[in-house]
Every structure is written in C-alpha cells, then in structure tokens.
Amino acid sequence: MFSHTFVDWDDTVYNTVAFKADIFGIFAKHGANEKDIKETFLKSLCTVAPHQYDYTFEEHTQFLRDLGYNLPDTVEAELNALFSKNYLFPDTEMFLQFLKSVSDKVVLLSAGDKTFQLNKIRDSGISDRFDELVILSGNKEKYLGDNYNNNKIFFINDNLRENLSVKQEVPAALVVTKLNTSRYSEEEAKQVGAPYFKTLSEIKQYVEQQIK
C-alpha cells in the first residue's frame, strides 16, 4: 500500500500524441506547413527556461503568425474545441480506479501552463478521480523530494529524464515508466533503471505482483 501515487498526465493517461496531431491538423488546414508547425510547437513548449513547460494555443498561434501566416481569428476557437474531445487511453479510468485500491491518495502531478493543463484535465471528465491536482512548470523531482521523501510513494510518468531525476531525488519511491514510443526506445527506457510498460493495464499487473 502506498501513501501517495503520483500520476503524470500527458502521454501517461492522456494520448497527447493524438491531441498534438489534431493541433497540427488545424494549423495545416489554414495553410501552415508541417515544418513550421513543428518548430513553433517546440519553441512554444518552454519559452522561459529549458524543461519549464508553458505551452498554450495562444503562444503557438502567435509564433506562426510571426512567421507570416495569416491565421484567421477563428483558429483559437477551433483549437479550444479540442479540449472537449476524448484523448484518454482506453484503460485510463480502470487504472485510476485500481490506484485507489492501493494508495491512500492518488495525485495528478503534471508540468505545464496551469490553465492549459486544467482545461485538458477538467474537460476529460476524470478530475474527480484524483485526490489532488498539482500542476508545476517543472522540477517534479524537487517537489517530491521536498514534500514526500519519507513517504512510500508510487510515481508513474512517461518522461525518462524526469523519471531518472525522481529515482535519484527520492530513492525509496517506486518509479514506473509508461513507455512513450513516439519519443523513446526501449533501450533508452532500460537505461533509466526503472520498470517500463507500454500500457496502463501492464503497469497494473506489475503492481499487483509487487504488493502480493
């Protein structure tokens, strides 16, 4: 039994690859080319400092306009409509229900612009599955180390850099990687030294074996 389970949002319980593809599709429909869409997306991910996430539709749109694209005023409404689409993985709700049975508290721990992340989370319809929503700009390992170093915690996340940092900062934590194959290879995941799985259902099976 864990005192706290910390669950990442993007690419862990929410299919951000599909979400991003739909964002790119809207910009492409209005004439932006794929290279510029991708480059401005990456530019808008962290505008303040590396690994400090602050992406918003407004920033991404403005960066494309700065390149000379005459995007219509309606584009932001089209983008905002994506919040109401279902991008949850098929086993997300089952997995969160399972976590309730093995954790005193289940906490969403996400990095990004707070308003933008909350729009995704609340419109997904599952925000009430979490005991707490924590949205940081970055430095998840510092947050966990400062507040939960003496607790038995479970951390689930797709970002390998963050997972390695959490393992180092909170050695007693059970860190499990939800493998994001769009960003990482299995070999890269192995190098973190944490168990990794492609689906939440597989993570559930692993945890069940660990707590027998």
Rank of each mutant, 00 (worst) to 15 (best):
F98E: 01
V107L: 05
K120W: 08
P171M: 02
K140D: 04
V170F: 07
K29D: 09
F6Y: 09
K105G: 02
S127A: 15
K167Q: 10
E39W: 05
K120C: 06
N180K: 03
S165M: 11
R122K: 13
M1H: 15
G145D: 04
I153Q: 02
E93Q: 08
F98W: 06
D131Y: 07
N149G: 12
L67E: 12
F27V: 05
L42I: 15
F197G: 03
T92M: 07
E76G: 04
L109T: 00
F27C: 06
K38A: 09
E202V: 01
V48D: 14
M94S: 14
L42G: 14
G25C: 09
Y53S: 00
Q52K: 08
G68K: 00
L99P: 01
F154D: 01
D131A: 11
L71I: 10
R122P: 03
D91R: 02
S101G: 10
A21D: 14
V7C: 07
L200I: 05
R183N: 14
Y206H: 11
K35N: 10
L42E: 15
L133Y: 09
Y87P: 01
Q209A: 13
L160E: 02
H4N: 10
D158F: 01
Y196M: 04
E58G: 08
F41G: 05
T199P: 02
V7I: 15
V102H: 03
F63W: 06
S127T: 03
Q117K: 10
T177H: 03
A49N: 12
D104Q: 13
G68Y: 09
Y14F: 15
E59H: 06
F89Q: 01
R129I: 04
D11F: 03
F27Q: 04
D73W: 03
H51C: 08
K204H: 09
Y69S: 08
N150Y: 10
E162R: 05
S201M: 02
N147I: 06
Y14N: 06
H30Q: 09
F130D: 03
L82K: 04
V175M: 06
D113H: 11
D91Y: 04
D36T: 08
L79V: 14
K120E: 11
I203D: 01
V106E: 01
A111S: 13
F98D: 01
N86T: 10
L108W: 03
T199Q: 01
K20H: 14
A49G: 09
T115R: 11
K38F: 12
V134T: 12
N149C: 08
G25N: 07
I203R: 02
Y55P: 00
D123E: 14
K20Q: 13
K178P: 04
L42D: 15
A77G: 08
E59I: 08
S3H: 14
E58K: 12
F116M: 13
G193N: 04
L67Q: 10
E187V: 15
Q62T: 11
Y55C: 01
L88P: 03
F24V: 10
D10E: 07
N80T: 15
E141F: 08
F89I: 03
V170D: 05
